[in-house]
Amino acid sequence: MKVSLDGAGLTGGAPRPDAGAGVRPVGPAPAGLDALGVCAWFGQTQVLDDVSLSVPPATVTALIGPSGCGKSTFLRILNRMHESTDGAQMAGEVFLNGEDIYGPGHRLTDVRKQIGMVFQKPNPFPSMSIADNVTAGLGLTNTKVSRSDRVDLIEECLTRAGLWSEVKDRLDRPGSALSGGQQQRLCIARSLAVRPKVLLMDEPCSALDPTSTRRIEDTIAELQDDVTIVIVTHNMQQATRVSQRAAFFLAEPGSLGGIVEQGDTVDLFEHPRDERTSDYVNGRFG
C-alpha cells in the first residue's frame, strides 16, 4: 500500500541527517477517528450532509475533491475548530478512540490539544523565536516542563518535522524569518509538541514550492506511525504518494457536500466504484 511512499526518493538517495537519531516520541498512541452522520451549516446554509468517515489509527487519510465541497469544513469539525466561526453549526458525532468529542465532559481545549491542526497558510507566531514557536502550545495549555525537558522537546519535535538540521543553529531567531516551507514544518513541529493523537492538515502544501512540498510529504511519511493523519489536498499525486486511505468529497449542483466514495487510496484511484470518482481522479472535471 505504501507504494510510492518508500520508493519515490523519500530519503533522496542520501541518508537524512535528521532520521534515525533515536528520537522517538513519548506521547500517547495514535488514535482512530470516526465521524458519524456529520452535517454542517454556516448560518442558514447547509454545506455538509450526513458525512461518515472512519480513520484507522496510525494511517494517513486523504480528503480529495473539488473546491467548495466541504472538505475543509469537515476537517475543522474533526477538531472542533468549525464552531469558532460565527454562525457555524454542526450535527452528528465524532469519536476519538470511541468517545464523542462533542459529548458532555469533553473540554474544547482538550479536544483540540489531542487533535492538532496544520493550516493551509503557514502561521508561526511572528513575535516568537523558532524555539518558542515549538513550545507555544505548552504555554497555551498551561503545561509546565522543566528547562532540560523543553530543550529535548524542541529538538525532538523539530527533528520529527524534518526541520532540526536546518534551524538548530538559529533557534532564537524569529520563526517568521524562515522560508514558507520551513515555516510550515515549524507549524508541524509546534503541533507535535502538545502530543496530539491525530494531526489534521488542511492543504498544507498548497502555498509551497515542489521541493518544500516533497519535504512535507517526507515528514508526513515519518510521522504516520506515531500520529494518525488526515490531510486535505487538491493534488492527486500527493494523495497517492502520502495516503493509504482516501475519501472523495463532492457537492454536485443542487445537492449538499458529502463523501461519494471512500476506501484504500490505491483502489480509489485505480478502481473507483463510482463514475464521478473516476472522472475526478482522471482529471475530467474539478
Binding site: F125, T141, R190
Partner: peptide, 9 residues
C-alpha cells in the same frame, strides 16, 4: 486559529 488549534484557551 493556530493558537486555538493547539488547545489554547
Amino acid at each position: 486559529e493556530a493558537a486555538m488549534a493547539l488547545g489554547g484557551t
